[in-house]
């Protein structure tokens, strides 16, 4: 076997997340060394992959809860009807509004020296609006629980109420996690270290919470 020594490729600088990936200024990165067809582009920043991984596992968790609900419903005759508190519909709108506010933030942001920065005061206003509305949603859910309790429906009263509390509580916990993410975005935007991938990931997570909530609402409305 012949031994050929190839010219080593120029060692380029390392991946620079603020510049490379499909963000505000992707492109111009075709540094493919000599005989390496495998390397086409630099890889995306992990947050933009990581978020899909996170959403996949959350989906699995709720799929498990859903199948538990269906199996439990079919297993005995103690399934009762439960009227969902009306405030849930208001909460849904609040959560949607929060997502909308976050989108408005995303449109009012520009790149500054590798980080993102609010374009105008407007952007941070929208961001705080998103945060407040998210918080309001959790408060609203709490009110819904209080209303059920007032009707004498507790966690262990019947299987329906059990599933209602469990599903809404686990969802609310995830929303609280998302609020933590929003706070982090606010902090990072303040000192211009916010990356586009972080903002995107937070936004996807936040919108996913909407979708998940609508799914849960329909499920609870149909099954309880």
């Amino acid at each position: 076997m012949a031994t050929t020594v190839h010219e080593p490729p120029k060692i380029e600088g390392q991946r620079d997340p603020s510049q490379s990936h499909g963000g505000f200024n992707s492109g111009g990165q075709d540094l493919v060394p000599g005989n390496l067809p495998a390397v086409k582009r630099y890889s995306p920043p992990p947050a933009s992959t990581g978020i899909w991984v996170v959403l996949a596992s959350i989906t699995m968790t709720f799929a498990a809860f859903t199948s538990a609900l269906i199996v439990r419903q079919g297993s005995a005759l103690d399934w009762r009807h439960l009227t969902l508190p009306n405030i849930l519909y208001v909460n849904t709108l609040v959560l949607f509004a929060s997502s909308f506010a976050l989108e408005m933030t995303r449109r009012r942001i520009r790149v500054v020296a590798g980080g993102l920065k609010a374009d105008s005061v407007d952007a941070s206003r929208w961001l705080y609006a998103a945060l407040t509305l998210g918080l309001l949603f959790v408060v609203g859910q709490y009110i819904a629980w209080a209303q059920l309790r007032a009707q004498g429906l507790y966690l262990a009263t019947n299987p329906n109420s059990s599933f209602f509390y469990v599903l809404t509580a686990v969802h609310a916990l995830h929303v609280l996690g998302g609020l933590g993410g929003l706070l982090r975005v606010i902090r990072k935007m303040g000192n211009s270290t916010l990356r586009k991938s972080t903002l995107d990931a937070t936004a996807y997570y936040w919108h996913f919470m909407d979708g998940l909530w609508v799914y849960l609402l329909v499920l609870l409305w149909m099954k309880l």
Partner: peptide, 11 residues
């Protein structure tokens, strides 16, 4: 692009 690793994601 510079050859430092400072901006690297896992760094």
């Amino acid at each position: 692009m510079h050859d430092t690793a400072h901006a690297h994601a896992g760094q």
